[in-house]
Simulated assay, not measured.
Amino acid sequence: MTDSTTDIASNIAITVDTGFLAEQSLPQQQRFVFCYTITIYNHGQQAAQLLSRHWIITDTDNQVQEVQGLGVIGKQPNIAAGDSYTYSSGAILATPAGIMEGSYEFRQADGEKFNAPIPAFALVQPSALH
């Protein structure tokens, strides 16, 4: 007899678009403001509700910020099977570049909870690239 398991998290795909907000940044005061837009695709057979987020944000001085909390932007969206959810948020770093990565906790319609990883992505002030 063979046991098989399904990686539920692999039913969730995440894409990220980033930007630098020059008008909100104060480089001379080590304040670099970034925006990001995330789209979460539910490729599974059941609806999945995003319960919480966990971020690890690291700047180029290796300063780490850890952010945990319920939902995203004050919401705990329920993403139907075959549907997607998009939101935008931001991060403030003390350096002109850094990376973010983390995970979302979801609950499927049948009550099963799982974590979906958020792949690392870069936050970079355009003039920081030479």
Rank of each mutant, 00 (worst) to 15 (best):
A22Y: 03
Q24N: 12
S25C: 03
S25V: 05
Q28D: 15
V33W: 01
V33D: 04
I38C: 03
T39Y: 03
T39M: 02
I40H: 02
Y41D: 14
N42Q: 08
N42V: 12
H43T: 06
G44D: 07
G44C: 05
Q46T: 14
Q46Y: 10
A48F: 08
Q49A: 13
Q49D: 03
Q49V: 11
R53G: 08
H54Q: 13
W55R: 07
W55I: 05
W55Y: 15
I56P: 00
I56N: 11
I57Q: 08
I57P: 02
D61Q: 14
N62E: 12
Q63S: 11
V64C: 03
G69N: 06
G69P: 06
L70Y: 08
G71Y: 11
G71Q: 11
G71A: 10
I73V: 15
G74Q: 04
G74V: 11
K75G: 00
N78E: 13
A80W: 00
A81T: 11
A81Y: 08
G82M: 05
S84M: 10
Y85F: 15
T86N: 01
Y87M: 01
Y87S: 03
Y87A: 02
A91H: 06
A94G: 15
T95Q: 15
G98W: 04
G98M: 07
G98A: 05
I99A: 06
M100N: 09
S103G: 12
E105Q: 14
F106N: 07
F106A: 05
F106Q: 07
K113A: 10
A116S: 15
P117E: 09
P117W: 01
I118Q: 10
I118D: 01
A120H: 03
F121W: 09
A122P: 01
A122M: 10
A122S: 15
Q125A: 14
